[in-house]
Write a protein that binds this DNA or RNA. Structure first.
Lengths: 127, 127
DNA sequence: ATTATACGAAACCTTTTGGTTTCGTGTCAA
DNA sequence: TTGACACGAAACCAAAAGGTTTCGTATAAT
């Protein structure tokens, strides 16, 4: 379907805190530029540029209504982020499992040195 | 590549494609700077700076072994990303549900205008 | 018709970013 | 002890990012 000319990618688009706040705002409802910029300490033009970047990444859609341009959230491109993230989940899940095992073991033995126990279980000890 | 000792956040850290590739590399195994930089067309020093930024964001941990510094992936900080993302999942899931409903309806009626059907279901129609 | 609003394009400025080269220091190898 | 290696700090640079102000052009309101 409508593949936008990817000048900006999603990762870059959400890197800026202001843009993340804009997305959050637009999650509530569609709104025109002036209203959006009313929520920020920067100029309307600056917000407009952020919106362009978000639009380039496909995270926002615009629609003209009279003399105003209303923007709304378009969340689908975030699926790419989710996919990217999924790859790494196993890493921290493994870490959490290690911690869980440790806590359970400690519950039973209620004696050993915490750090020593973690040291033993930790798999990263080459050399 | 200004590398202030200030904390870099995760969003910013993963914004750069090179840094994402570095993370992926380190996902396979711990490795020293020279080996890492061997996978990229940029200088060792440049890679070193990327590693610093990743370390500031907590995405990477370093360990000195002899004359080399080995880096390894540290995925936990990505949980912040996951939490951020979770907020937006409902949006695209809703979109997908709308599409699903539309497809199912079309299966049954096999006649209506696609766009008209979507228009009716779409909730964003103020004015 | 005239004035006010809404907004983007342009030009411009400063800071940050991603990169380079050069150099100093610590560490292993002969 | 004399090199060779691994690496970070520093100084430097071009380009991108994030802002601002100014201006032109639609559209609405009076």
């Amino acid at each position: 379907m409508a593949v936008p000319s990817q000048k900006h990618d999603v990762f870059q688009a959400i890197a800026d805190p202001t843009r993340r706040q804009v997305l959050q705002l637009l999650g509530e409802q569609e709104m025109p530029v002036t209203v959006i910029s009313g929520h920020f300490p920067i100029s309307r033009t600056a917000v407009s540029k952020h919106l362009r970047i978000l639009a380039d990444a496909g995270l926002v859609k615009e629609r003209k209504v009279g003399r105003e341009t209303r923007y709304r959230l378009e969340a689908e491109p975030l699926m790419e982020l989710k996919r990217w993230l999924a790859y790494y989940e196993r890493y921290w899940e493994n870490k959490l499992n290690v911690l869980k095992r440790f806590v359970e073991a400690d519950d039973e033995t209620s004696g050993g040195n915490s750090f020593a126990a973690l040291e033993i279980v930790d798999p990263n000890q080459p050399e």
